[in-house]
Design a protein around this nucleic acid. Structure first.
Lengths: 154, 154
DNA sequence: CTGCCTGCAAACTCTTTGCACGAAT
DNA sequence: ATTCGTGCAAAGAGTTTGCAGGCAG
């Protein structure tokens, strides 16, 4: 999905939900959707302020859940205290797992369609209806272990 | 593993690591290991204070990572802001997934040995060595949906 | 005795919220 | 003209940490 098409979808989503299309929301959305990698709320604030310096931290935090609900952004919680976000360029129904390198702080997104099957199977045995599932692998970097550094390292 | 055997293992772990066997650490460990279900740091503080009212919040928070490292306690992070803990009565190498009911706030622990295989497979493709993996399913309670309540509800 | 361990309270991180002003519809 | 959205700063939750005194080894 192109950036402009995504932006149009976001505007539609806002209108559809009775929410207003404000400059701040657009600036935040455009900045978020332009990212190539995972980012945090704080990073998004910095980036969005370059485009529109009137954007505040509060609005970023208030807009992130809206964008996530629209399906245009994915939220990733790897248990480090802060949440990460990622443009959802693929279809929103894709099931993905994360592989997190503890040396490089890099997050890899891996397609894992079997997760949904697992969630359904296990839930039904407990009399539950699955809502979502997440699968995360923490790993060490071989390159870092061998050479003391890694090309992916920040 | 019996409670007394576990306590002995904990003492050994402390000594082995050059850490001191204090009354507070023992009170916290015994309280934690007596739990039948998941508990939070704050709950553990309350429970431990019944046994030894000199136990402080700081010491609970400092002891929890030690107990987790010893393998006698498992740490479960379901992304709700607070961590949960659970006595590790089975062997420490057991791979478990969690099913979290969003209606009842109940956490089910489910054996999922394939997680380890998945972690290894995916990691090796990325030049990584797996450290740990977690698989969590969020689900709604059918009983709650149908009757507006659930026997597991707190 | 030595120095790790402790309780207390303050600090910290990330996120949420109350309020009065400002802008979208 | 309404009403929702906004920035600011303070509050909030959960956890960590600096410090002076206390207890294990």
């Amino acid at each position: 999905m192109s950036h402009t098409a995504a932006c149009e979808k976001f505007r539609q989503f806002l209108t559809c939900k009775g929410l207003r299309v404000t400059n701040q929301r657009l600036a935040i959305f455009n900045t978020a959707f332009a990212q190539k990698d995972h980012f945090t709320a704080e990073q998004l604030l910095d980036y969005a302020r370059v485009v529109d310096d009137s954007v505040s931290r509060a609005t970023v935090y208030r807009t992130l859940p809206i964008m996530a609900e629209s399906g245009l952004l994915r939220e990733v919680d790897i248990g480090t205290g802060e949440k990460f976000y990622l443009p959802n360029t693929a279809g929103s129904t894709t099931q993905v797992a994360q592989v997190v390198c503890v040396d490089c702080d890099k997050i890899f997104e891996i397609s894992a369609p079997f997760m949904e099957w697992y969630g359904s199977t296990v839930s039904s045995k407990l009399g539950l209806t699955p809502v979502s599932q997440r699968l995360q692998v923490s790993a060490h970097c071989n390159a870092f272990r061998d050479k003391g550094t890694c090309p992916r390292r920040t």
